[in-house]
Amino acid sequence: MSAPVPPPQPSSSATSADVADLYKEIFTGQQAALEVVSTGRLSQVGARPPIGTYLKQLWGRRHFLWAEARAKVTSGTRETLLGQAWLVISPILNGLAYYLIFGLILNTSRGIENFLGYLVIGVFLFQFTTQCVTNGAKSIQSGRNLIRAFSFPRASLPISVVLRSMLNLVPTLAAMLLIIVLLPPAEAWTTASLLFPIVLVLQVMLATGLALLFARMTTVIPDLSQLLGVAMRIWLYASAVFFSIDRFAEYPSIVGIMEANPMFMVLDAARDCLLYATVPDAGTWIGLSAWSVGALVVGFLFFWQGEESYGRA
């Protein structure tokens, strides 16, 4: 078992503090045993792996991510009578409510052609981002049971939130497309519509980056989760969800800010593809790609850097 102390060899890899401790103990006369272990066989637990290994571990847990997302997507409706059907029913009801209010009762268009389609795209797509960001920010807190029970790359939790929102998005998108195609003024499928999935991919990347970013930020400053609701509301208004950007035509600076906003770009591109049968312009593509890739890379690196701190949350 433990070996008695041989004349200690202060080898170069021991820190000077260790050695000082050791000598102190030996000379104060208490019995001491020296155990030598090497990092060749043992490795440090809970240490943050290099980014490549981390990505590999994350990929190794893909089945876990998927299972977790699928398990949680139905947990909100488990106690209801209609169960999973609500995942489809509630976006359809939402869409119908907008149709009823804006299409039939108010009959407003605010100078926007096909206002119903405009509104539905804005609301449903923005809702996805909101879900990802707010639930992503809470993911470390709400996944504490799992964090305390298993060691796995913690980025799994915010990423699983995004996956869950994507599963929620599927019926929502179906409802959205039905409304656009069926309810008057009906739009037809065009070749530009084929670009819509690309817009979605970019939006998902953006949302994942933000979810990772805020997941770590709220563990450092818990107060952020209180502010996030307000921030998302401001972002909602700044993304021209209910109105047209043309309203601000006299204020070029506001227009400039809004056009640099990634969610505005997402909605603008989606509307171009689905409603106006135009291919979004190159500026939108470049700007949106830059935001999405940037958010994902920054969010991921930022989250990975805090990997060792989440156990305490």
């Binding site: 890899s13 401790d21 103990e25 045993a33 020296l34 272990v37 990092t39 060749g40």
Partner: peptide, 27 residues
């Protein structure tokens, strides 16, 4: 406490590219 055999764990780092010490300084 007094009868306890104090254990010192000495970790020998076999892979430490950063803290490399020159050969002549090593034991």
């Amino acid at each position: 406490f007094s009868e306890r055999e104090q254990t010192h764990v000495h970790v020998e780092d076999t892979k430490q590219p950063r803290q490399y010490t020159a050969r002549h300084v090593r034991a």
